[in-house]
Design a protein around this nucleic acid. Structure first.
Length: 190
DNA sequence: GTTTGGATTACT
DNA sequence: GTAATCCAAACA
């Protein structure tokens, strides 16, 4: 069953946590979300909304569940989901998924043979799923032919940790991962 | 008009 | 450890 926009209308932190274990479908490929991070518009200096006015514009011009795709370091696209809750707006950063279907195609796009290396990082999974700047602003809940999330029967134990790869507000435990997963990004925090 | 700093990855 | 490579923001 596909996840509706209602899912993205609660606060960003609990939405990010509950997205772990869901299936992310994109064209012929899919995978189970094993790692996310939450970013909030309020009291979060690491969020794009703190430094980039364009991120705030994006929030006011789009609905909950929209895809916020960002080009980082000039070479890697990074996928986020817009969250608009009563307790504040923010984004869910999709950091890693466990490949499920379309693995051969993902290997071809990535040029890698190890399944554990296909989607174990935010820049990697966008390449594997063929997500790019042309998908910026599209919806995860209203565009059935591009990408969406599904409920699963996966039994996942979710743990929280500090966010990584950022220079501000590092102390918040807003990174959520599937416990003991071999498919999460390996880079250490702190 | 020029400079700077990233939600990173892969290779040495 | 570090090169690769681009855009929006910030500064002059």
């Amino acid at each position: 069953m596909r996840i509706s926009s209602k899912f993205f209308k609660k606060d960003p932190v609990s939405a990010a946590k509950s997205l772990v274990g869901k299936r992310m479908v994109c064209g012929e490929c899919s995978g189970i979300v094993v790692e996310t991070e939450a970013y909030a518009t309020e009291n979060d200096k690491a969020a794009h909304t703190f430094t980039k006015p364009s991120a705030r514009d994006f929030i006011s011009n789009h609905k909950a569940g929209a895809a916020y795709i960002y080009l980082n370091y000039g070479m890697y696209w990074i996928a986020n989901v817009l969250v608009k809750g009563n307790e504040g707006n923010g984004f869910i950063l999709i950091r890693a998924i466990r490949p499920d279907k379309g693995i051969a195609l993902m290997m071809e796009r990535r040029g890698r043979k190890k399944i554990g290396d296909l989607c174990s990082g935010p820049g990697k999974l966008t390449i594997a799923l063929n997500i790019g700047g042309e998908d910026h602003g599209k919806s995860f809940t209203r565009n059935p032919k591009n990408f969406w999330f599904e409920e699963t029967k996966e039994i996942t134990t979710v743990t929280s940790d500090k966010r990584i790869g950022i220079s501000r507000s590092k102390s918040l435990l807003w990174r959520f991962l599937e416990k003991d997963s071999k498919f999460v990004s390996k880079k250490k925090g702190r």
